[in-house]
């Protein structure tokens, strides 16, 4: 229980850091969205090449936004809350290369359902 509480506190602290970075206008690569498997792999490879502590770098490469992006061609909303990497009860992105606390209405270009 104490561990859960600590994890929750750490998540909230990091979520706040991310929120501030995005609110401050961090120039993320939200487009092009990763439509094909090859595009997904290219972005994942770039994420794998980043320093583990480079949080802004990860947000930029994955194209994390603090609002939901609708795919322009598919006309498909791509919020974290419907993504396969999203843990509903922790508000967390479990994609190993991203591994960040998020909000349900945020979005990124690695979204998959």
């Amino acid at each position: 229980m104490a561990e859960d509480s600590q994890a929750s506190g750490a998540d909230e602290s990091r979520r706040e850091t991310i929120r501030k970075l995005l609110d401050a206008g961090l120039d993320v690569e939200a487009f092009p969205r990763c439509d094909s498997h090859e595009q997904v792999q290219a972005v994942v490879r770039r994420l794998q090449g980043l320093d583990a502590n480079d949080l802004p770098g990860r947000l930029v490469v994955a194209g994390v936004t603090n609002f939901t992006v609708e795919h322009p061609e598919a006309e498909l909303a791509q919020p974290c809350e419907t993504c396969m990497y999203y843990l509903v009860h922790r508000n967390y992105c479990e994609l190993p290369e991203l591994d960040i606390p998020v909000e349900p209405d945020w979005s990124c270009r690695l979204w998959r359902i």
């Binding site: 598919a74 498909l76 419907t82 509903v88």
Partner: peptide, 28 residues
């Protein structure tokens, strides 16, 4: 394998639109 974030190969008999709706509801 995905196309625009949606699996190319769906579970047998499942349509893409139904899959997307079901996923949103099930995750919630």
């Amino acid at each position: 394998q995905t196309m625009m974030g949606v699996p190319k190969d769906m579970p047998t008999g499942v349509a893409k639109t139904g899959y997307i709706k079901l996923t949103a509801a099930a995750k919630a």
